[in-house]
Each structure stands twice: as C-alpha cells, then as structure tokens.
C-alpha cells in the first residue's frame, strides 16, 4: 500500500501542474464555443506569448511587469489581427472546416518555424532558474510556484465566470455562441463577441504559458503538444461547456500524475491519446452532454418523421 502522504503529494503536485492545462483548455474551449472554431492557431499564440516574455526579460532585460505587458499586448494584437484579416475572411467565404483546420494549424507551424529561426531549438525558460522556494505543509511539499499557479488559475477562472455571468458583453458572447444569426437580429454584434472571446483566450494563454515557462523549458515545438492536450480535454469535457472542459483538464492531469504509480512515464502520452480515441469510439457524436441543453418541445401529435429535411 502506498503511503497516503505520497498520494497526497501526487495529488497536490498534479493539481498545481494541471493549472496551465486548465488555462489552455478553457481558452481553446471558449473559442470553440463562441466562434465554433477549432483554433489550433492558439499553439502559435502560446509560442508568441512565451518568446516575447523570454526575449524582453532575458535579452532586453526589461522588468518582469514590462515583459508580461508586452506579451499580453502582442498576443492580443496577433489574435485580433488574425480574427480580422484571416478568420473573418474565411468565414465570409463559407470555407469548409478543413480550410479552417489547415489555416490554424499552418499558422502555428509558421510561428514555430519563425521562432526556431529567431531563437533556436534549445529549451528556454522565462527565468534562468525554475526552482522556487518550497515549504512543507503537514508532510507535503508546497512550492511558491504551486501556490502561484493554483491562485492565478482560480482567479482567472472566477473572473471569466463573473464576466460571462454578469456583464452584457459576457451575455452577448453566450448569445452568439448559442445562435449567431438570431443574435445579430437582436442587434448583438457577432464580430464583437468573437473578438472578445479571442482576447480572453489570449489572456488565458499568456497566463498559462507564463506558468509553464517559469517551471519547464519551452521550445518552438512545445505549444503544439500543449494544444493537443487542450483539444482532448475539450472533447471529453463537452463541446460548449467551457468550465467542465477545464475540470476534465484537471482530471487528465491527475490521471497522468497518478499513472506514474502504475505505468512508466514514457507511456503517459499514449494513455492520453488512448483516452481520446476510446472516448470517441464510445460517443461517436460527442459526449451526450455536448448538445446544448434545451427545453424539450412538447410532443406534437405524430410529428412528421422524414429523412428529407
């Protein structure tokens, strides 16, 4: 039997480690919900966000806050630019899902190649050291980074919840997510909602890559792996359910953390993809909860059941 303190340690570290997964997942799930876009370009945004911070702190020797501000501004700028000059163009052309898929993925690759050219392929971190002070709380090691990660993630998620719940723009975003055409009829600008969801996602991405980059090395290829985890969590969590996708991200991170008790760490990646594959086999049209909850229409007498639409 494994020592409970060890289990608790794994649990805590797992939760702390899940922080950036959660942020990336929520960012991905939000754009998917509002824009109906599988936005793989977010991997590119992660790269931009990370290397902006890296450059401004390590090459330009700016103060930390300036580096973060620069990263936020640039990431949001690229997001808005992409929305206006690319995504919106494709949307107006009624491009197929494949085209969006190609564009977002290729954009991320473009960024990765550009970053490789500028910064090379050596793993880099935001600060020279990834160690952070550790205290022991009833036998469990808790680092400053852990606390920062959990605190930051919780704060951002609460802020997002409040924004969606209590502001007009948040409500508009939900309305557009639910029915874009209808919202426009009611005078809600879909474009504004799209850009807002993009900006929020960009903020979450900067926060996530900040956490990741203060703890582990980043290369231009890392973001693609990170986005895939977000895709898996989003799929299992449920389309259109941003916060439950975030919960699934925690669950997956914990599963990976605990799996070291049973399987070698090198097989953890396989575990993740296995879960994805089998989740889709069992729910070929998505997890049942994906369909937005609607009030069941009252049964009409003998509704016409026809294959024709």
């Amino acid at each position: 039997m494994t020592d409970p303190v060890i289990l608790l340690q794994i649990l805590w570290t797992g939760i702390a480690m899940s922080s950036y997964f959660v942020l990336f997942t929520v960012a991905f799930a939000l754009t998917l919900k509002v824009e109906k876009l599988w936005n793989f370009a977010q991997a590119g945004l992660m790269g931009i966000a990370f290397y902006t911070m890296f450059w401004s702190l390590n090459a330009a020797h700016w103060p930390t806050w300036a580096g973060i501000v620069a990263s936020v501004l640039l990431t949001i700028g690229v997001t808005i630019g992409m929305e206006i000059w690319a995504i919106d163009v494709l949307r107006r052309r009624h491009s197929s899902g494949l085209i969006f898929f190609i564009f977002t993925l290729i954009f991320s690759q473009f960024v990765a190649f550009l970053l490789t050219l500028l910064f090379g392929t050596e793993p880099e971190t935001i600060f020279p050291s990834v160690m952070s002070p550790v205290r022991i709380v009833s036998g469990i090691a808790v680092s400053d980074w852990d606390l920062q990660a959990v605190g930051l993630t919780a704060a951002l998620l609460i802020a997002l919840y409040l924004l969606i719940r209590f502001t007009r723009d948040g409500q508009f975003m939900l309305a557009v997510a639910d029915n874009e055409k209808l919202s426009e009829i009611y005078g809600i600008s879909a474009r504004r909602a799209y850009i807002l969801s993009g900006v929020i996602s960009a903020l979450l991405i900067v926060a996530g890559i900040w956490l990741y980059g203060t703890r582990a090395g980043v290369t231009p290829d890392v973001p693609v792996d990170l986005i895939l985890t977000a895709v898996i969590a989003t799929l299992i969590g449920g389309l259109g359910r941003v916060f439950s996708a975030g919960m699934v991200a925690v669950g997956l991170a914990l599963l990976q953390s605990f799996s070291i008790l049973f399987i070698a760490s090198k097989w953890q990646g396989l575990l993740l993809y296995g879960i994805l594959f089998f989740a889709l086999l069992v729910f070929p049209r998505g997890i049942p909860a994906w369909r937005p909850r609607r009030i069941q229409p009252a049964p009409k007498p003998a509704a016409p059941v026809q294959a024709e639409g």
């Binding site: 899902g97 594959f277 086999l281």
Partner: peptide, 22 residues
Amino acid sequence: TLRISGDYLLIASLGFQLGLLQ
C-alpha cells in the same frame, strides 16, 4: 471509427495517429 461523424472523426484519427506514434 467510421460511425464517427465529421469533425470528431478528424479528432479521433488524430488520436489514433498520435497514439501509435507515441
């Protein structure tokens, strides 16, 4: 996976590919 429709098939195939690659 052929029962899986549309975008989900795309993601399922991605899972298959990356899993085998792992």
